[in-house]
């Protein structure tokens, strides 16, 4: 969907933002550009909607060299989210969300319907918020408006520049979770810029890790954690690599499908919600969640349930540790 081919960008003042960057983003996936500030990740993103043009190399959008496309038209076909300051304070929430459809010349009725649909999707009750102004909203709500606005014309590609950066940690985490759910439904091709490696590991199907102007490693979150390419990547991931690995490992990889008979009753009781505070996990939940349940509740085994609530497997601390050992031995 988006391809960078030996792209170099040098600004007019001689600063080299990125040097010989190549990678490809598949349709329907989320690629996170991550790195310290000034590493060129934002510049890389801006090359896609031609807020910047490459000095050397080519950026392809759907197979076409972007510099051959009309920037105005290209931008109207690409959703763009920046930190909350990007909302138009003099327009209502509905007007903000309807900006691009209006530029595209949609009928007012169609715009209204679309705005209502998106506000519901983003969990902003339309009747309550439609006519409010951005400054009357909380930070999290403003960010929802920003995302809704970017989705307004149903673009194939979304560019998100630190979209959750200005939020407090709890709101940020909630929005991340919600956005992952939404992405499941809308299935867009997303380029997501952040300086936060944890956010990158959580949000990304692929991670492009930048160091001053260079693309150091382009890989899945698992690969980045298991086989960091060099010391820079290791340092950037930070000290808790093992814990972060748990975060990106789904429960299904560590669970034991042979449930011991003597545990069955207890596990079924947990699955039915009869043990206060203990929540069963599902196969795609992160192993980190499972481990924290085990430790917090001081129990030996946690049930893994299917969508119907039936126990299909069990997770134990030992099973998780076993997984960790092989990874430590094989990885670093």
């Amino acid at each position: 969907m988006i391809e960078f081919e030996h792209v170099t960008k040098v600004y007019d003042d001689g600063t080299e933002a990125i040097n010989d960057v190549s990678f490809e983003v598949d349709q329907g996936t989320t690629t996170v550009l991550v790195g310290p500030s000034g590493c060129g990740k934002t510049t890389t993103m801006k090359l896609v909607n031609r807020l910047e043009d490459p000095t050397e190399g080519t950026v392809y959008y759907d197979g076409e060299d972007v510099t051959t496309l009309d920037p105005i038209e290209l931008r109207r076909n690409i959703g763009y989210v920046i930190q909350e300051i990007g909302l138009f304070d003099h327009m209502t929430v509905a007007e903000n969300i309807g900006t691009v459809p209006e530029l595209l010349g949609w009928e007012q009725d169609r715009i209204d319907d679309r705005v209502t649909e998106l506000m519901s999707l983003m969990d902003l009750p339309p009747d309550q918020y439609r006519n409010q102004y951005p400054r009357e909203l909380s930070g999290g709500q403003r960010q929802r408006v920003g995302v809704a606005r970017a989705l307004a014309s149903d673009p194939e590609v979304l560019l998100m520049d630190e979209p959750f950066g200005a939020l407090d940690p709890i709101t940020r985490e909630n929005l991340q979770d919600e956005f992952l759910d939404i992405q499941d439904k809308i299935d867009k091709t997303i380029l997501f810029v952040t300086h936060d490696i944890d956010e990158a590991l959580k949000m990304g199907d692929m991670i492009a890790l930048f160091d001053v102007g260079k693309l150091v490693q382009y890989a899945t979150p698992r690969e980045i954690l298991e086989t960091p390419k060099n010391q820079f990547v290791k340092d950037f991931i930070g000290e808790n690599r093992a814990l972060k690995k748990l975060q990106v490992t789904p429960v299904e990889e560590v669970m034991l499908t042979d449930v011991p008979d003597e545990d069955r009753d207890e596990l079924a009781a947990i699955a039915r919600g009869e043990r206060d505070g203990i929540e069963p996990v599902k196969r795609l939940d992160s192993t980190q969640v499972a481990l924290s349940q085990l430790i917090e509740n001081d129990i030996a085994a946690l049930p893994v349930v299917d969508d119907g609530g039936d126990v299909i497997a069990v997770v134990t601390e030992k099973a998780i540790r076993g997984r960790q050992r092989t990874y430590e031995a094989g990885g670093a």
Partner: peptide
């Protein structure tokens, strides 16, 4: 008018005149 506002408007595909008319002047 905040740079981020202008950048958002540009990134959404407004022309310079539209940015002036719809964003900068009203603000």
């Amino acid at each position: 008018v905040e740079e981020g506002t202008i950048e958002a408007a540009t990134g959404m595909g407004m022309t310079d005149n539209q940015i002036l008319r719809k964003i900068q002047l009203p603000l």
